[in-house]
Computed example of a mutant assay.
Amino acid sequence: MSQVAMLFGSETEVLADEFQIAGFERFSTVDWPGKLVATLFAQGCPWRCTYCHNPDMQDSQVAGTVEWSAVLAHLAHRMGQLDGVVFSGGEPTRQASLIPAMQQVRSLGFGVGLHSAGAYPARLREALGFVDWLGLDIKAMPEGYQDVTGKSAAGPKAWQSLEIALEWGGDLEVRLTVDPTTHTRESVLSVIKRVRAMGGPTPVLQEARAEGTSEEFQRALGSQLLTSVLSGSDLEGLVVRA
């Protein structure tokens, strides 16, 4: 019996094996600020964001391309060399097997990071019990989510997830990708103001990248940048991540 099965039971071990992985970055310095990590990209996402650069990861019916056993084998040889493992996506909280997978990672002595857009608040609440750092995407004010994600119900779920993350009280980074095709100066500044008013950290701003996105988005984006939406004075005191 493996160490994980002894700690959490054989059912947990089986469920972790079901985690659908679309990609595996064995070494990353950018997915968890200040940490050296391996990053897993979960298959499947319920939203269709305008600027999504991983569209192949959206379909939840597509099988994973990386075996969980291969991830564990890699981690077994990286103990003491990596600080942790980041679960990204896609949307990792879509999968019930996320939590057993996190448990396995923790049992090996690695920290756990999570990237989420907050699409599944209940699952996020449960997962946070096994998370050391959360990067939560807040994409717009609630009423603006339809334009960004194509889903009108997405906004309330994302902002509920932010409330859950703040109640959790752990290490949280809120990120906002500035999309010049849907965002205005006022809408971006409104998100920043509301997150702060809730007691959250000032969102880190990210550029919407054309690479990997749909041809429609690339045409709409053109040469526009984050600075097409926000001025230099708007950006004073804010963190921008390319």
Rank of each mutant, 00 (worst) to 15 (best):
V37A: 07
A38V: 00
T39D: 04
L40Y: 05
F41L: 08
F41A: 08
A42P: 02
Q43W: 03
Q43V: 00
Q43N: 03
Q43E: 06
G44P: 02
G44W: 02
G44T: 01
R48H: 14
Y51H: 14
C52R: 10
C52Q: 12
C52V: 06
H53V: 02
H53P: 08
N54V: 10
P55F: 11
D56M: 02
M57K: 00
Q58T: 01
Q58A: 03
D59R: 10
D59K: 09
S60P: 03
S60D: 10
V62K: 15
A63Q: 15
A63L: 12
G64Q: 11
T65Q: 15
T65V: 14
V66W: 07
V66Y: 08
E67A: 14
W68Y: 11
W68V: 07
W68R: 06
S69A: 12
S69F: 00
S69V: 04
A70E: 13
A70L: 05
V71W: 01
V71G: 06
A73V: 01
A73H: 05
A73P: 00
H74W: 10
H74Y: 10
L75D: 06
A76R: 13
H77K: 13
R78Q: 15
Q81W: 10
L82A: 05
L82K: 08
L82Y: 11
L82S: 07
L82I: 03
G84T: 00
G84R: 00
V85Y: 04
V85K: 03
V86E: 02
V86R: 03
F87Q: 04
S88N: 05
S88Y: 04
G90Q: 07
P92M: 09
T93R: 09
T93H: 09
R94L: 15
R94Q: 11
Q95V: 03
A96S: 07
S97Y: 02
I99Y: 02
P100I: 01
P100N: 02
A101H: 03
Q104C: 10
Q104V: 06
V105D: 11
V105M: 10
R106L: 13
L108E: 14
G109R: 10
G109N: 11
L114A: 11
L114D: 14
H115R: 09
S116D: 14
S116N: 13
A117F: 06
G118D: 14
Y120V: 13
A122E: 15
R123H: 15
R123L: 10
L124S: 06
R125V: 01
R125S: 10
R125N: 07
E126H: 06
E126S: 11
